[in-house]
Amino acid sequence: MSTVSQPLLKLENITKRFKNLTAVNSVNLDVAAGEKLVIIGPSGSGKSTLLRSINLLEEIEEGTIRFEGREVGYVMRNGKRHPDRPQAISALRAEIGMVFQHFHLFPHMTVLGNVMEGPLTVQHKPADEARSIAVEILAKVGLSDKRDVFPATLSGGQKQRVAIARALAMQPKLMLFDEPTSALDPELVGEVFDTIHTLADEGMTMIIVTHHMGFARELADRVIFMESGNFLAQGTPEELFSSAQDNDRIRGFLNRLL
């Protein structure tokens, strides 16, 4: 089976520049189906930019993105790179779930409305089907009782769980988490962490950008330490933390976090 041999996501020489700053510097990355990848590193190291480049929220200057083997996001025309058609880009995003640091729930929709929105508007499912999908997923993230309230009434942890449910409702093949607990009060981190943990146990492929070492230790198959747009080190959590003994930069970063 070709799906076993080829990675779900393959990044080749991804480079993203902002004016005179190179945020991501020729990065290569393979993510196998079912893999849990955690990216750590100091602020401004390019972790979030890399993540956003994957679902095409950032336009990259160089490199190719392969999703399930096919090249996505960009087309060559007259020897120049152009973003692909909007429909193709939307279609890719529909297959990749994303969770943001600041949730970005739709404030004018109820919790149920938020979760239904993808199936309803993007997948054009009938309302009752979209509704039953949303009801089921909200039960999974433990928010069945909050179905009919507006996001403004929720705690940060609850909001983030709704955001996760909203992404899951699209039945994505890959989940991207962009610092999902950074905007939360410390006592609310646990519930979001548990939700992501449950998802990981079900075999979801995920890339998590985080400062939360619990993700790295308990969830990650592989941890990448990123700095100044480059992968400085990568390996299993054990490998990375032991290599930290030899690497001043990684050790310094980890010590600051602990």
């Binding site: 929220l57 939307s90 995003r93 990749i96 779930g97 994303m98 943001f100 739709f106 993808g118 699209m170």
Partner: peptide, 23 residues
């Protein structure tokens, strides 16, 4: 409107016009 709203709408696969109309 917070730019994150457009990004969140796009992230679940909405087109520009869907994001405008719905979000």
């Amino acid at each position: 409107i917070d730019h994150g709203q457009m990004e969140a709408a796009k992230a679940i696969g909405m087109s520009y016009s869907q994001a405008m109309r719905r979000v």
